[in-house]
Amino acid sequence: MDRKIAVVICFAFGLVMFAQYFSAHPLARSVNQTIADYWQIIFAFALIVGVVGFLNNNFQQVRKGQDRPFRLLSLAGFVIMPVLAMIWGIKTGTPFLWVFENVQVPMQSTVFALLAFFVASASYRGFRARSVPAAILLSAALIILVSRSFATGPLSDWLPGVAEWIRNNPSMAARRAILIGIGLGSLTTSLRVILGIERTWLGGGK
């Protein structure tokens, strides 16, 4: 019974959202605004679930003694940031923004920058022209790579044109095919969910 109620609610909201999209009537606009508001509120509650899960998981691991220093550091960050924001605010020059700029941003940038080293290593060890398709892929990648750099001399005359051709033809054709596929897939899945054919989101197989 409870599943049927969920399916009916899903069907009703799916139908309403679909119908209001095609209407500029004030009532349709108002429905859209109200549902968007509730959507944000529901999402904010979903964040609470994430926060509780984070705390629960970390406290459990601390109790077990697993990666204790790292877990404690995570929990400290979780407490310190809101406290800094509540006491000194979030304007420029406040401790909150200082910690964000000088701890979180460098840490994330560092992890992301490590990719450059892995790419360099992989380019030597893995990027091989083992077959004709691999050779074509390799050539296209090298042309695009040089085109995104600073190329001088004779290279600068023809390279941007070739790179542009690769972007506008083979690359865009593949991308469009993927996008159309995603669009059709999303449409089918949405219809299946709205019509109650697809019910796995309710947490069961049937």
Partner: peptide, 12 residues
């Protein structure tokens, strides 16, 4: 980028 290109060429 030029370094990566050099590595690709050397690797091949």
């Amino acid at each position: 980028h030029l370094y990566v290109i050099l590595l690709v060429i050397l690797g091949n």
